[in-house]
């Protein structure tokens, strides 16, 4: 977590970082998807996420009040100051792994923004309300693919199971609450994420059942993203993403 950010700004930055890093990951697919139509779908999701990142990181910078805009936050922080969850920085892997990540995350985002659209804070609520329309579709799209791949061929089922197993380790982190969350709730901007867990479980289980897939076994969660303790993957994501801003300091694009 960026220690320089006040709690409410840090809260906005977490939301922005989640969307940014997942959008960045999905951007890697562009031109390489299993079908032309899927290329269009994945880029649509990526575009929505980059838009959310722009809004939330812009808000984080505005709350901080130190003259940092969304780009400054996106392109000039190092790994330890990024506060996205570990799930979104996971590699794309094959299409099943990408879908597994999207499935777990978009269902979380849909529940989160449903609540956040109702908060008192007039900066967070409208961004969440707009994003809600987007992520509801992402959740449907990903869920439908989970069903198709889970209940498709033997190969697709094996791959879907492997993809879910890869991502499942990072699902618990989505619902972990800490001081930043508490401060955001106290300020009428935050959502009790722990309270979303039951609804999320129900949605995930319903789709897995339709996909004829078993829920991966519970395990010790891997956490740390929210406080800047990331996987090895994030550094590589950032080194590509931030290359131009780093190589040409002070330039306008």
């Amino acid at each position: 977590m960026d220690s320089a950010l006040p709690p409410l700004a840090a809260y906005a930055a977490r939301l922005g970082d989640d969307s940014l890093i997942l959008g960045q990951r999905l951007g890697e697919w562009c031109g390489h998807a299993p079908a032309l139509e899927v290329d269009l779908s994945l880029s649509n999701v990526a575009l929505d996420l980059i838009g959310q990142a722009t809004h939330f990181l812009g808000l984080a910078g505005a709350i901080e009040g130190a003259g940092r805009d969304a780009d400054k936050l996106a392109f000039h922080r190092d790994v330890m100051d990024f506060s996205n969850c570990l799930l979104v920085e996971q590699p794309n892997g094959d299409f099943a792994q990408t879908i597994a990540r999207q499935f777990l995350f978009s269902n979380y985002q849909a529940l989160l923004f449903e609540q956040m659209a109702q908060v008192k804070d007039e900066r967070f609520a409208p961004i969440a309300a707009k994003a809600l329309k987007e992520v509801k579709y992402h959740a449907t799209l990903a869920s439908d693919w989970v069903v198709r791949l889970g209940d498709g061929t033997d190969e697709s089922k094996t791959r879907m199971v492997a993809g879910l197993n890869w991502m499942w380790r990072f699902a618990d982190e989505l619902f972990v609450m800490d001081d930043v969350d508490a401060a955001a709730i106290a300020n009428g901007a935050g959502v009790d994420k722990a309270a979303l867990r039951a609804a999320w479980d129900a949605r995930i289980d319903a789709v897995l059942a339709e996909a004829t897939l078993a829920r991966p076994a519970a395990r010790r969660p891997i956490v740390g993203g929210r406080v800047g303790r990331h996987s090895e993957h994030l550094g590589h994501v950032l080194s590509a993403m931030q290359f131009l801003q780093r190589a040409y300091p002070g330039a306008n694009w």
Partner: peptide, 15 residues
């Protein structure tokens, strides 16, 4: 796409 210099350019290029 992954190396676009800012968020606006990234979104434009993706679109």
């Amino acid at each position: 796409i992954t190396r676009a210099p800012n968020l606006r350019r990234k979104a434009i290029l993706l679109a």
